[in-house]
Design a binder for these strands. Structure first.
Lengths: 193, 193
DNA sequence: AGAATATTTTAACAAAATAGTCGAAAAAAC
DNA sequence: GTTTTTTCGACTATTTTGTTAAAATATTCT
């Protein structure tokens, strides 16, 4: 009945911890089983395979991120501030997810195309969310009239560009400064006046 | 010549990072090789096996800890403050070494007796260092006369007792409070007056 | 109760990963 | 140019790991 759903969630939570700490490769089904206090085989009653567990975790995390972004920006009316807040939260949250990244980026060669699929989906959603903010800005006469779809895509690419150094050095101050700098450049080209 | 020593140190440093992040089990020789930009086989020119690398790392860390303790306490003349500082630094540094712990504690059953050896040696050194501080306190008339050897051993055991909850929750504030509390209790039973 | 269904465990196995070996090539020292 | 030191790739043996199927156990329903 609902038991299955509960256990599924427990497994996802356990897997989330492990994946985020050790990455996909170094996390074994046995690790997950141990944390959930189950036999390794029992996991296969809830998930078809390891990849499915990973997919579930990623989707779960993505929804968390989406909610965080929504919560952080809903109160803000000024589009510029909203955009900056969005980028800020997005980058900081993404900082927690580096290990998934690493797990994914490195063995990108082989058969992990489902990740690319998820990523593309997420990028698309993100571009749309940003475009919405940009449209708002244009409608309010705060932003210059522009191709918001193109601009949104550009911003997504820029954020992805910022992610890579994030993997290397975990210094939060530098990240904030970098974000601020880029946002400022962006705004001075974007804002009317 | 000295090249060998240099490379050995580089390997130890790389292994240190990896072991502390992933633990003994999840760190592979290939991981270490990758970080040091060497072929996996090359490592065996410097170390007999994985266990040897681990041993070298542990020994290195132990010496670091010893130095940190010495540096932190040498300037302090008041034995009570010195003792508190010692415990504080020791616990906080130990916090970084949890992953070694995990790596060791879990597969304690099998052939890792060399760890116990190292641990015993370290405990002994520690007890001696603490006893020295206690002796000083007694000599200065700040501490009640007491069996300093017994007291030192007790303190070592107390610190080890504090380590376990440390594995569970990483909250630094709670740790500080707990340490403070214990130290206070200890001092009120220890200090003259 | 016992039948039907849901969940867990056991045992097994193939494929992948991993620790460790060896000899030969490269590089460095002499 | 010979010797010594260092690196590396190919190979092997062993262990780990993902996955499956069937048996065992627990839970729910009638």
């Amino acid at each position: 009945m609902e038991k299955k759903e509960t256990v599924t969630q427990e497994i996802i939570e356990a897997a989330r911890q492990l994946f985020s700490r050790y990455g996909f490769r170094k996390t074994t089904m046995e690790d997950i089983a141990r944390v959930t206090r189950k036999g390794k085989s029992s996991l296969y009653y809830y998930f078809k395979n390891k990849e499915e567990v990973f997919r579930a975790v990623i989707i779960h995390e993505a929804s968390i991120l989406r909610k965080a972004l929504k919560d952080a920006t809903t109160g803000i009316s000024d589009p510029a501030k909203k955009l900056e807040k969005y980028v800020m939260v997005r980058m900081h949250t993404m900082k927690e997810l580096i290990n998934y990244y690493e797990a994914v980026e490195h063995e990108h060669d082989s058969h992990y195309s489902f990740i690319d699929q998820l990523r593309d989906q997420f990028d698309q959603d993100e571009a749309e969310a940003i475009r919405h903010i940009l449209d708002e800005g244009v409608a309010q006469g705060k932003f210059q009239p522009l191709d918001t779809e193109l601009a949104a895509n550009t911003l997504v690419i820029a954020m992805k560009g910022l992610e890579f150094p994030l993997v290397w050095k975990g210094s939060t101050e530098n990240l904030d400064k970098r974000i601020h700098k880029i946002m400022k450049i962006l705004f001075y080209g974007l804002l009317k006046r």
